Amino acid sequence: METNSQTSGRVVDAPSGNFVYQILPRALWPYAQLARWDRPIGWQLLMWPCFWSAALAANVAAGEGHFSLGQFVGHLVLFLIGSIAMRGAGCTYNDIVDHRIDMEVARTRSRPLPSGRVSRFQAKLFMLAQALVGLVVLLQFNIFTIVLGILSLAVVAIYPFAKRFTDWPQFFLGLAFSWGALVGWSAVFGTLSFSAVILFIGAVAWTIGYDTIYAHQDKEDDELIGVRSTARLFGDDTRAWLVGLYGLTFVLVLTAFVAAGVGLVAYLGLLVAAVMLAYQIAVLNIHDAADCLALFRSNNKVGLVLFAGLVLALPFA
C-alpha cells in the first residue's frame, strides 16, 4: 500500500477526483492531504458551529435594533477562512503526533507522513504556516474573542493524545470542533451568554455522535493497536447512545433558540435537522465502513439546515 501511495500520490480513503488534484501541482499534493483539502467535510463541520452562533447572535442583534449585514457577512467569511486554516493545522498536528499509529492502520497508512512523501520537519513548517493564517483571522475580532480563540488551543493540543488515555477522545474533539459556537457570539457582543454556552454544549454532543459513527470505520485496527474511542466503548449499543447524544443536541439547541428569542423559521430548520439525525440512527450499520462514512458526511447537511433556518429567521430575510 505504501508503494501504491508513493507512485499515485493519493490517499486510499480520500476521493481521487477532488479538485485539489486538478488545480495543484503534484509536488503540493502531500500538503493538501495533510490539511485534508481533498476532504472538505472536516472544515465544514468545524465551520457550522461558528456559523450557527454568528446567525444566532445576528437574530438577537436584529431584535435589539443594531444588526449589521456587513458585519455578519464579514464574520462568515472570516470563519470560513479560519475553519479551513485551523482544521488543516489541526490535522497536520494530529498526523505528526499519530505518525507511528497511522503506519499500523490500513486506512491511514497511505497518508503523506506514514508513506514518506513528507518529512516531519516539512509537516511542522506547514502546520505553523496554517496556524499563522488562523491567527491573522483571529486578530480581526475583539479582544475577548481573541483570548477565547487562543484558549481553544489547549483543547486542540490535548485531542491527539486523548485516544491514549480515555475511551472518550470524541469528547475532546467535540470541545475543539464546537468552540466556534462561543466565538461566533463573542465576535458580535464581546462577551458570552447563556444561549451561546448552551449552543456550544449542544454542538459538543452532536460532534461526539457523528464522530462515533466515523470511528466505527477503524474499530478493528484500533483494538489491535490499543487506540480507544467511543465506537469501541459503545460497540453494539451505539444506536442507543446516539439516541441520547442526538436527543441532547436537539434539546440544547432548542433551549439556545428559545433563550435567544429566534423566529419560527429557525425552529423549523431545527426540526428538519432532528429528522435528519433520526434517519442516521435508523439506518446506521456499524459493521459497514462505507455506510458509516456516508452517514458521517451527511452531517454537513444537518449543519447547513440549522444555519439556513437561523438566517431565514432574521427580520430582513
Rank of each mutant, 00 (worst) to 15 (best):
V253A: 08
R87K: 13
A215I: 07
P49R: 07
D13I: 15
R109N: 13
L199W: 06
N299A: 06
W179G: 03
L312A: 11
W168D: 01
V305T: 08
A231K: 12
G70T: 04
W185Y: 08
Q280E: 13
F200E: 04
I208H: 02
G17R: 14
S68Y: 03
N299M: 02
F72L: 00
V118G: 06
S110I: 07
F19N: 07
I81D: 01
N18R: 10
W52G: 04
S68P: 03
R297M: 05
W179L: 02
Q71S: 15
P40N: 01
P49I: 07
E220F: 13
G309D: 06
V11I: 11
G202H: 11
I158G: 06
A266D: 05
V73C: 13
P169A: 00
L252S: 02
C292Q: 09
I198N: 09
A85M: 02
L233Y: 13
G42W: 01
A129T: 10
G190K: 03
L293C: 13
G309N: 08
L199D: 02
G63Q: 08
H66M: 02
D218P: 10
A289M: 11
S53V: 00
Y267G: 04
G116C: 07
A129S: 15
L182Y: 11
L270M: 14
D98G: 05
V283N: 05
G226W: 11
F67I: 01
S119H: 05
A260E: 11
G263M: 07
V265A: 10
L293H: 11
A57D: 10
S5I: 09
T166E: 02
V204D: 05
G42N: 05
I213R: 12
F194H: 10
T255L: 13
F189I: 05
L306P: 00
G269C: 04
F171K: 02
T238K: 05
S186H: 05
V60G: 01
L270C: 03
S115I: 09
D38M: 01
F126A: 06
A215E: 14
V272R: 01
I150C: 12
V60N: 06
V156F: 07
R111A: 09
F172M: 01
